[in-house]
């Protein structure tokens, strides 16, 4: 009955709906094209500039086209030990932070979502709230604390790349724990009851059942932790200064820009290569990437 009515309405007004629909489609494509151009101009311009020689960059020709493309900038950067050091530091920091984040946030999320104990609900909310405390509020007291540690114990923390491995988890753990709580909570309780009846302990319950079932969540959280550590700019800016201790974003900004001499071809190449790991992850794991982004607000 209902479908019958709907079909009748559809037939009666098909002409006008079709015209409206076509107009809506036209404007949708129009705005999409405009915003794709707006959104992709900077990365495309990075690529264009990275393929130019210094002479062509300062020439009066069109900045939007490469007349004599060259890979010289790429060769130069990828053979420069300074740039490779930045890259190595960034990669080490990001991988270690991902490992630490997962080791801490997965058990915590499991305990908070399944083993209800005194204060567990408050703790879960509290974890999420700490995600709202920005790095820009913490870098000054942290700087002072690290300087104090040096005075008190003689352990030098400032200007060491591995300090970032200690600090970055504060940026990744709250959010990763939060989204893992969301994924774990969506697993039906019958599963753990069955496992417990079969004599599994909590550790087995986590590794044999929860991790495999919530694997998409684990992947989303891993991607989140990696991209956050790869992109973090303020902490390395504040805590590291020596060229061999810098990570990519800070390294490019501080060392490739020497005084007033801007070697734009190299800067753009460095920035593009630095943006590549997150872009590659995004290209191959887009759905997980987006799941991680939207999980914070739609789950839990």
């Amino acid at each position: 009955m209902v479908t019958g009515t709907r079909a009748a309405v559809g037939i009666a007004s098909r002409g006008s709906i079709g015209r409206d629909r076509r107009r809506a489609l036209f404007w949708s494509y129009f705005f999409l094209a405009v915003f794709v151009i707006f959104f992709l101009t900077p990365p495309v311009y990075m690529l264009i500039t990275s393929l130019k020689t210094s002479a062509e960059i300062s020439a009066a020709t069109s900045p939007w086209w490469v007349f004599s493309p060259t890979l010289a900038n790429y060769v130069e950067l990828l053979t420069s030990s300074t740039y490779l050091t930045f890259f190595r530091n960034s990669a080490l920091v990001a991988l270690l932070v991902v490992a630490i984040t997962m080791l801490i946030s997965i058990p915590a999320a499991f305990a908070l979502s399944r083993m209800r104990f005194w204060g567990s609900a408050t703790l879960a909310t509290g974890v999420f709230l700490t995600y709202l405390i920005p790095d820009t509020l913490l870098f000054i007291p942290l700087f002072k604390i690290f300087a104090f540690v040096r005075e008190a114990t003689g352990i030098e923390l400032l200007d060491r790349w591995w300090l970032l491995v200690i600090v970055y988890p504060t940026l990744t753990i709250p959010f990763c724990t939060w989204i893992m709580i969301g994924y774990f909570s969506s697993i039906p309780k019958e599963l753990d009851e069955a496992a417990l009846i079969d004599g599994a302990g909590y550790f087995q319950l986590l590794t044999r059942i929860f991790l495999p079932v919530a694997l998409p969540g684990v992947i989303a959280a891993t991607i989140f932790a990696f991209t956050v550590s790869w992109a973090q700019f303020l902490y390395p800016m504040a805590f590291t200064t020596s060229a061999d201790q810098l990570v990519l974003p800070v390294g490019i900004v501080t060392t490739l820009i020497k005084g007033d001499v801007f070697n734009w071809g190299q800067i753009m190449t460095g920035a593009l290569l630095g943006a590549l790991p997150p872009l590659v992850i995004y290209a191959f794991l887009m759905d997980y990437y987006i799941a991680g982004l939207t999980a914070g607000a739609t789950k839990g």
Binding site: F39, P43, M46, A231, A271, A275, P278
Partner: peptide, 22 residues
């Protein structure tokens, strides 16, 4: 969707360099 999310994926410090150059 894939093309439109690119600005969010690039680390902001890197993409801001492109804007600085623009």
């Amino acid at each position: 969707r894939g093309m439109l999310l690119v600005p969010w994926v690039i680390p902001p410090a890197m993409s801001t360099l492109a804007w600085l150059w623009l």
